[in-house]
Amino acid sequence: MSTQGSWQRDVFADLGGVPDPAAPEAGPEPEPGPEAAVPAQFGAERPAARRDSGRRTAHRPDTAPDSVPVGAPDLDDALGRVRRGDPPLRRVLRAVRALGASAAQDGASRAETARAIQQPVTTGRQIAVGSIRGGAGKSTVAALLALTFAHYRADPVLAVEADGVLGTLPVRLGAREVRWSCTEIADVIDASTPLASVTGYLVPFPGGWLLPGSRGTVTRNRLDPKAYYMAMASLRRHFGVTVVDCETLPTDVARYALSATQARVLTAPATVEGVAGTRLILDWLDTLDPAMLPTTVVALVHTSPDMAVDIGKAARHLEVRGATVIPVPYDRSLAAGGPIRTARLARATRDAAARLAAATMDRAVAHGRGDAVERSEASA
C-alpha cells in the first residue's frame, strides 16, 4: 500500500497544510452517513488561500468568464417546504427497532458498506452514471453518489456534469452560480496543474468539488468529446473518486464516458418499460466490450410512490453477465427537487446510496487490479 499512501500524500501536499489521511486524527470518528458534517480538511479554507506547492501551473487567462446563476433566481422562493423522506410514524418505528437485537446486525452491515466505500486506490477511480432517457433520476443518483463518497472518503472527490445542455447536477448539489465549464477548463489546466490551483476553477459542494457541464445556457453544440477527454485526463490524478453525470445515451460523450471509466451506473425507472429499455442498453454494452457488464451496477430508481414493478423479477431480467441491481426507494425529500438536503433523506435512501457507492467502488477497484495484471502480463 506504499504506492497508495504516496499518491494520497502528493494530493494532500498540493492542498497545502492539509493533514495526511494516514496520520491519526484527534477526536471521535463521526457516525457513517452522507448527512454528517463536511470534513474539516475540505471546508476550512477557500482554494485561493491555500499554499501553492511550487509545481508548474497552466496559464490562467487574463479574462475569466462571468459567473452565471444556476437555474432561475426569480424562482428561489418557489420551492415549498421540503418534507423529510421518512414520515413521522416510520421514524418512530425505526427508533423502536433500534432498541432490538437487529440493531447490531444493521450496524455491522453499515460498517461493512463503509469499508467497501473507503478502500484505498492507487490512482483515481472514475464512475460514470448514465441512462437511456431523461427523467430516470440520473442526476439525482450521481449527486447521491458524489455526496456519499465525499462523506466516507478522506481523499478529494469530484463530480463532473458531462451534460452540456440541460444538466441538473449543479442544482442537486446546491450550487448557486457557475463560472468555468468542462469545455473551458480543458483549455486552462493540464496534468501538471496542482490541486490548489485546479480547485479555483471548480465549485465546492459539501465535502467535494463540482465541474459543471455548461454555463447555464442551451446551445446547439453539445459537450465536445475531445474537451471532455482533455479535462478528465488533467483532473484524474487529483481526485480519489470522480463521479460523471453523463448525457442520455447514446451520445458520443456518454459512450466514451461509459467505456473509459472503471465502473458505471445505469439508472432505470422502476417500471416495466424502464427495465426493458435498460436491458437493451446492457445488451448493447456487451456488444461493445463484454468486460463492461461485470463492472456495471443498475440503480432501479423509484421516482413515484406508486411504482409497483416486482423488484425480484426486474433484478433477474437485468442481472446479466455480471451486472448487479440495487433498488433506490422513493423519497419525498428527493421528489421535491432542488438541492439535496441529506439530513432530510430517508434512512432507506441513505442506505441505498451507500450500497450503490460500495458496489461501484468494489467494481472500480477490481477493474484497476485487472489493468495492473494486464500490464504485468504484457511486460512479461
Rank of each mutant, 00 (worst) to 15 (best):
A196F: 01
A196T: 14
V198Y: 05
G200C: 07
G200M: 07
L202T: 04
L202A: 12
V203H: 14
V203C: 11
F205L: 09
P206G: 11
P206A: 15
G207V: 01
G207A: 02
G208C: 10
W209N: 06
L210D: 11
L211C: 11
L211Q: 04
P212S: 04
G213N: 08
G213T: 04
G213E: 05
R215P: 13
G216R: 08
G216C: 09
T217A: 10
T219S: 12
T219Y: 00
R222M: 03
D224W: 02
D224K: 01
K226L: 11
A227L: 13
Y228F: 15
Y229E: 10
Y229A: 07
A233W: 00
S234N: 09
R237K: 07
H238E: 02
F239C: 10
F239D: 05
T242R: 00
T242S: 06
V243P: 10
V244N: 10
V244C: 14
D245F: 13
D245N: 09
C246S: 06
L249R: 13
L249P: 06
V253M: 02
V253Q: 03
V253Y: 10
A254S: 15
A254I: 06
R255V: 09
Y256K: 04
Y256N: 14
A257M: 05
L258I: 15
L258E: 02
A260D: 10
Q262R: 13
A263P: 08
R264W: 00
R264E: 00
